[in-house]
Design a protein around this nucleic acid. Structure first.
Lengths: 340, 340
DNA sequence: ACGATTACCAAAAACGTTTTCGTAAATCGA
DNA sequence: TCGATTTACGAAAACGTTTTTGGTAATCGT
């Protein structure tokens, strides 16, 4: 609570001199500098970031919209890793992280929240319906606020996104399946709006065609990234199409539910039915059987997003471009050769 | 970027009138109020939180020290749930969350960081060596900054902590084991400094004595919440004491490593050796066999911590007390009757 | 020795609010 | 109608910095 003024008074100098000393400006005399520094130490002074921000118009905080707007209290397993990464890189750059949580302001949007708090940039890390590119997203996109989203296709002068190569990932998943001899491959997707879901679906379809296996619309269901819906979809699919011998499910969480459901239904995985997921969440390796899946580089996604954001913030001439990171097929025990 | 001044000018009134209007003060005339509101809407004004904070000395942000200081990039599975809870309750109260990450300030402590940012309160959610009650913790404890820690015994006028009932939890774990007929029960603990570790160890020892089974120091090893160390400890324990028929391991992460190691060593779980963990992380239920463990109420821990903190902040006369939340034994498949 | 630079520092503006104080006009009570 | 409230508003201080401007004294080059 000791201010720059207190120091100035005690040192017998002006506040401007104190400010310059504290900020290592060159134009302050040797002895005055030392005196001021000593007094500051004694009074254990530390600057008030709020006051500083007010005049500098820079807060050294980067904002973060995080999680599922609808379904709070549930957060994606994905998040912990990307947040870790984000923390690491923004922290090293001298920034703190402001997680928007305030729910008292009803009449506000992403953009106005950012402006109110004067964050220097913002990271969008949303799931569920938040992925919908709605009005608020558009507003943010064109607001001029430095912004990078994860898995949401925002593009603008100060705005971009990073994602996994979902198309290729999905493609690799079904390639793996057809190479194991599978031809009747069910698909449990996400939703109909998110780019992520769309790309994975396209990867599935295109590869099926490319491999000479046809696409059968009746093999396709949407699970909306919900375990319950995925379970329901599985029952329907197996009931209507008992000839199916493999599933590609676009998230590990859903894939786990699918596996449970399949086993409840009396099918063995992978002997009767093969299963590949997407994400490579921690649980995947410990499932029984351990889940074959497409691994997303979560940590890299977070750190890339953060790096790009910092660059947008600090280099005015930088024009950001979307970044796509590779996925990787990791084969475990939930997939096997088709037997006849 | 439109300020209160702009509105004042356009409306032909003073800034104080604008401010009062915007803050719903009673003493402003009907027509002027409406005019001002309309203009504010048109110019799509929103207040500058930084400026407001400066004068009000209140930021409506609560700070958060989070994770493992040493070992960044790895965050405890525990965290996601308690953060979800924290977000929920502070958000509903109108606060945002500032996660401290800035690593550029070397000469700073928890306390000074909080003061610089002028957070209204702070949540300590640390693991690893951060749990050590060091100088910085003491400083924070007596700083007068509203503070609640999780699993770290801080107590002060504006400072307290919440934790699980680790003693009873541990006690329940070994009770379960001895009720299954086990007498030679190995223990893999945490560290020697944290209260959490200490309480669980005491629960183990006391219950053993209470049940008439002796405590054997050679059955006790420390794993420091690290999978590798837990694995090593397991090997040592089984080599030196092959008569052991059960383990109580004080974290699920370590318990998983112990299970893997045991299986590598050729033991079957639970047929040869029973195993109970602590935490009930998500993976626990999917391990093979599914892990019997002591469940911590992670969400409640987070929400309790947040609620207490808000009360400290908003009720000056409130004197906080430590809060202990119950654990619960959840029996799965990693424990079984001892066979001879 | 004289003008020009340089080194040091103070004064004051600025950032965008909230809040205190004061006061003119309007209303009120009798 | 007159004093006393009340109502509605403006002026200005305050919050704690950074930054701009300017000025004095010392130093320098020639």
């Amino acid at each position: 609570m000791t201010s720059i003024q207190d120091i100035a008074k005690k040192a017998g100098v002006s506040i401007s001199t104190v400010s310059r000393t504290l900020n290592n400006y060159p134009d302050v005399g040797q002895k005055t500098r030392e005196k001021i520094l000593k007094i500051a130490e004694e009074m254990n002074y530390f600057p008030n970031a709020v006051a500083r921000s007010l005049v500098q118009k820079k807060t050294f905080t980067i904002g973060m919209f995080f999680g599922n707007n609808m379904n709070l209290g549930f957060d994606h397993p994905f998040f912990l890793d990307v947040i870790s990464a984000v923390r690491e890189v923004v922290g090293n750059a001298g920034y703190d992280l402001l997680v928007f949580t305030n729910k008292n302001k009803n009449r506000s949007t992403y953009t106005t929240l950012c402006r109110e708090r004067s964050v220097d940039g913002v990271l969008m890390l949303l799931t569920g319906e938040g992925k919908k590119k709605n009005e608020q997203m558009l507003e943010l996109q064109s607001s001029g606020i430095p912004c990078v989203a994860i898995d949401i296709p925002l593009v603008g002068d100060k705005c971009t996104y990073v994602e996994s190569d979902n198309y290729t990932g999905a493609s690799d998943a079904v390639k793996h399946l057809v190479e194991l001899g599978h031809r009747k491959i069910g698909f449990i997707g996400g939703d109909e709006i998110s780019k992520t879901s769309y790309d994975r679906m396209r990867g599935y379809q295109d590869t099926l065609i490319e491999k000479g296996v046809g696409v059968r619309p009746e093999y396709i269901q949407l699970g909306h990234f919900s375990s319950e819906k995925a379970s329901k979809a599985t029952r329907k699919l197996m009931k209507d199409n008992p000839e199916i011998t493999a599933f590609f499910v676009v998230s590990d969480e859903m894939a786990c539910a699918v596996m449970d459901t399949l086993q409840e239904l009396g099918f063995r995985v992978p002997e009767d039915i093969s299963l590949v997921g997407f994400d490579d969440i921690k649980e995947a390796v410990h499932y029984s059987p351990p889940l074959t899946t497409i691994k997303q580089m979560k940590y890299e996604i977070g750190s890339e997003a953060a790096k790009i954001l910092l660059q947008i913030i600090n280099d005015k001439s930088f024009h950001p471009e979307p970044k796509t990171l590779p996925c990787e097929l990791v084969v475990r025990k939930s997939t096997a050769h088709k037997v006849d």
